[in-house]
Amino acid sequence: MAQPEKKRYIEDEKKRQQRMKRIVFGGQIGLGILVIVLWEVLTRFEVMDPYYWSSPSTIYETAKVAFLEGTLWDDLVYTSLATLAGFAAGTLFGSLIGLSFWWSAYYSRISEPYLIAFNAIPKLALGPVIVILFGIGFFSKVMLAFLMTVIVTALAAHSGIKAIDKDLEKLLYSLGAKRRHVFTKVVVPTTMPWIVSSLRINIALALAGTIVGEFISSRQGIGRMILYAGQILDIDLVWVGVVVLSLLSMLMYAGTVSLEKLLLRGQEPKQ
């Protein structure tokens, strides 16, 4: 007599993971589309007042006009460049300040409370002073973005310095290393994950700094456009500014993530 065939259930891990990935990705796209469609429908049937809430289609049309006939493109470039310059300078200087604390325990301990105090100052409140000092041009925006990021990075790098394994330093000295060897071969790589973990926050902070700079006084930039649109009650244009800034912010965030991968080469970011 033939044996009845036994049913076998084999768990396919790869298949399950792929299935999950597909569903999640589809859900993420779907949710975004749903929000935009709801926004459009609700404003079209005036459940939400289109004067205040505008609508995706109006925003799109207004943006097209602003890009093709207005100065939106130039404003976007202006804001992006100011943000990136402030971000780069802040991160670089901040890292250098943080790393420099490794060289002397006295210097490090004496300056630490000042660093924390400076971090506590709401930098945006310094905006008017910065504009008076550096004028209403490009440089004052860069300065604000720089101020927003520099201390955060310095503090992050400082935490990294404190986490260095003393035995690693000892090992290097036993191999005949000078301080500069320990610095380049142990201190910088150990601190890198801390510095990198501050990047994602920094890019958003830098953008906020630039926008506030443009709000205060500027001839160009998305921030100035939003302020101007608000003054003439062109709310559709305000929404265009907000949407463009959000897209810019997302794009910069994605860029930061690639930068992280490049800087870490296999290490994990630390908080």
Binding site: D165, D167, L168, K170, L171, Y173, S174, L175, G176, A177, K185, V186, P189, R265, G266, Q267
Partner: peptide, 17 residues
């Protein structure tokens, strides 16, 4: 004077990166 003898500790102290 360091660097004249080789020295190895219980921890391997390999650089993870």
């Amino acid at each position: 004077k360091s660097g004249y003898v080789g020295y190895m500790l219980q921890k391997d102290l390999l650089l993870p990166w």
